[in-house]
Design a protein around this nucleic acid. Structure first.
Lengths: 145, 145
DNA sequence: CTGTGTGCAAACTCTTTGCATAAGT
DNA sequence: ACTTATGCAAAGAGTTTGCACACAG
């Protein structure tokens, strides 16, 4: 745990955020499982299972601060909840409304967008959401249930 | 006004929505000015200047219903407000956070996205947002102010 | 007439904030 | 010590809903 904890401490410092107990805890939850998409509530639910769960407000604040520093990335999406992505590089998403599921478009299929940029502006980010719908009910793998 | 009013009545009917006084009023505001991007509050502000403004709740409900019927299109965006677009065909957007401004990417520059669609799914919609930032303050056209 | 839509206000969801306390440097 | 973050609860924005009344078919 130690090298990772140190690493997170460094990352927070480098981003200009004081590496507090709670922020380290939150960062650990965030980054321990590889790339993920989550909302504040999702993360709070996870944190609740740990020994010293941070408050919900602290999770909201931490995610906002992390996003402002580029440690995570906010995702443009329909609806009222804010989604965050621990993968910050350029990549796009599928979104399945029915299951409120968000997942990456595979790296090799990231389209190259080639649009003109208006005078005096620069691109701060690009979001692509492909909204999906199930065409039919799943062919239930197991009969019953 | 009459042919247009009749047209709207037909469009609502065709969409399966009862063409009530308020919905017709709202549809008129929506579609009278060509393609636009707006939120419920924007539209409510406009409606307030008219003789019989619908209530805010009715505007929210109408926009939600219109979107469900494909008369307008919901836009995926950061933040908590829902934006609607009266242009329903495929096209993408620039978004300038600083001025909360949303505008179309010109038709001829709409990129063709060519990504694989997972088994048993179909594309319900595609949203592309190019988030822009000003690189510098505007070179004020007129000296003073 | 019958059922759906409207208006209002209250409820709800998601997120931020104020203030006293705790913790980082 | 000094400053910034935390926790809680309360406020805030945006949106939806319950209920009585109005209106379209």
């Amino acid at each position: 745990m130690h090298t990772q904890a140190l690493d997170l401490r460094q990352r927070l410092k480098a981003a200009g955020l004081r590496p507090t107990r709670q922020r380290l805890h939150i960062a650990t939850l965030l980054f321990a499982k590889g790339d993920r998409h989550l909302t504040a509530e999702t993360l709070y639910a996870e944190a609740k299972n740990t020994r010293y769960p941070p408050s919900l407000a602290t999770i909201y604040n931490a995610l906002r601060d992390f996003a402002a520093c580029g440690l995570v990335r906010e995702i443009a999406l329909y609806g009222s909840r804010t989604w965050y992505d621990t993968k910050t590089g350029p990549h796009f998403h599928y979104y399945v409304e029915e299951c409120d599921d968000l997942f990456d478009i595979p790296e090799e299929h990231i389209p190259k967008l080639n649009v003109p940029i208006p005078q005096g502006m620069r691109v701060a980010g690009v979001d692509v959401i492909i909204r999906l719908e199930k065409t039919s009910e799943e062919p239930l793998p197991l009969a019953a249930e």
